[in-house]
Structure formats: structure tokens, C-alpha cells
Simulated assay, not measured.
Amino acid sequence: MSAVKNVIKDNYNMMLLKDYLREQIKEAGFSHAEISKTPTGTRVSLHVTRPGIVIGRKGVGIRELTEKLASDFELKNPQISVVEIDKPELSPSVMCNRMAAHLERGTAFRRATMWTLQQIMNNGAMGVQITISGKLRGDRSAFEKHTAGILPRAGHHADVIVAEDIAHVKTAMGLIGIRIRIARKEKFVPEFELKTSKAKKHQVKDELTGKMRDETAAEKKARTESEQIAMEEEKIKEMELLDEEEEKLK
């Protein structure tokens, strides 16, 4: 067999293996697998959110999985290690699976999308983009794309910073595809400066000392109901409504 055919066969087997692991250890929060060949066999590192489910009681689960990989996927002497993921919300594979589970349970696709987006950003992501496509509301296929934060789109820096994954889920309306791209701050390229918005400061009089001091916008409190309404009005104007985003996509 030529070298090209060997590469194609190995890639195809890795694709089948990933699909099998995604379904077999779904309850353990499977993210991805790192496979490397060693002189003594094949080393397989499984990255999951709950290692105990993979290992099983007295190691029964991991022994059965080892036998399965050796017999069905022809891995020579597989040596499985389980690695726990620190922040599951920053793993595209885990979040794709969670969002797919929400859709399978009947959650509205837009509610599931916004919830996933919020969870990823609240756990320290630099940026996220969620694309959902398929028969979302009717017989005709459509897609929606939601983005938050800073997400490089192309180039070397996008390859370094951004991780992505794709999942498919069967619903009553048909097949729906989910694509999640997450940019992580800890992989930020040093030669670029990540600028954060600074809170605006203004001078106020300290009631205790009588001296003027700086007060941030976050610390400012409305003294009257009129000021509270005015502050909220500015925030409401800055809100991006989903209906307006939907009109832009049409």
C-alpha cells in the first residue's frame, strides 16, 4: 500500500474513532483524543470533564474501552490515559455536545444558542462564534451566526488562538448542524496587545472627607428615579435585539 493510501486510511480510522468516543463516553464530557505511536504500543489520551465515568468502578470501564480500541480500530497495545479538563466551557467539543443535548430535549434553538454563548464568555473566553444551520423554523433550511468578544477570523493567529468543533443533532424538523469557535486568552499572541475598555472616571465629592475623588461609571449610583431611568435608557439603546439581527440575516 502506498504512503498516500496509508495516510488516508489512518485519517479515516481516526475520524471513526472520534465519532465512536464522542458517542461511547458522551456522559463523561468527551472533548478530544490525542493518539501517538510509541515503540511499546499506541498511547491514547482522552480529554474529558468527568474521568471517573471513563475509568469505571475498579477500572472496568477503561479495560473494556482498551479491548474495544484494540479489536475494532486495530490499535496495537493501546495505553489509555484520562485527562480532566479544567474549564469545560472553553472546549468547543464539550459545548457542541451540550448544545446538541439541549436541542434534543426540545429547547428552542435560539435560547440554546444564547445560553451557550453566555456560558462560554462568562468563563473567560476572549471571543466566541456560534453558527447553527438546518431546518430551524420551517421547511426551508436557514442559518444563524452569533458572535461575542474578539475572535480572529483568518491567518496564523487565528489558527493558534481559535479552536472549533462541529456537531450534528437530529430533531423532529430534520438535521441541525452546530459549529462553535472559541478564542482563548491564554493562547493570545504576545506581539499583539489586547486592549480592554477602561471605565470612565469623573470627579465627585467625598461626603466624609469633603475632597474630590475619581468615581468610575460602575460605582455611580442614581440619586433619583429620573437618573435611574436615564441610565437604563442608555443601556437599552446599546442592546442588540435578536429581531434586528434576524432582519440583517435575511
Rank of each mutant, 00 (worst) to 15 (best):
160 V>A: 13
143 F>P: 00
140 R>L: 09
154 A>T: 04
122 N>E: 14
152 P>F: 03
150 I>K: 15
149 G>C: 05
141 S>D: 11
135 K>C: 02
120 I>E: 13
140 R>W: 01
127 G>D: 08
167 A>N: 14
144 E>Y: 10
149 G>I: 01
119 Q>N: 11
141 S>F: 06
140 R>F: 05
142 A>Y: 08
122 N>K: 13
164 E>A: 13
128 V>K: 12
136 L>W: 03
118 Q>L: 09
155 G>K: 01
117 L>K: 05
126 M>C: 11
114 M>R: 00
169 V>F: 11
145 K>C: 12
162 V>N: 02
112 A>N: 07
135 K>H: 04
155 G>C: 03
114 M>H: 07
171 T>H: 14
158 A>H: 03
138 G>S: 14
146 H>R: 07
117 L>N: 01
170 K>G: 08
123 N>L: 07
164 E>W: 06
167 A>G: 09
149 G>Q: 08
131 T>Y: 01
147 T>S: 10
141 S>V: 08
115 W>I: 05
138 G>T: 04
124 G>C: 05
122 N>T: 02
162 V>Q: 02
162 V>D: 02
129 Q>K: 12
146 H>K: 04
154 A>G: 00
153 R>P: 00
148 A>S: 13
128 V>C: 15
154 A>M: 03
117 L>W: 00
118 Q>T: 12
115 W>H: 11
166 I>V: 15
145 K>A: 04
157 H>S: 13
132 I>D: 05
160 V>G: 01
169 V>R: 09
134 G>A: 01
125 A>F: 03
142 A>S: 15
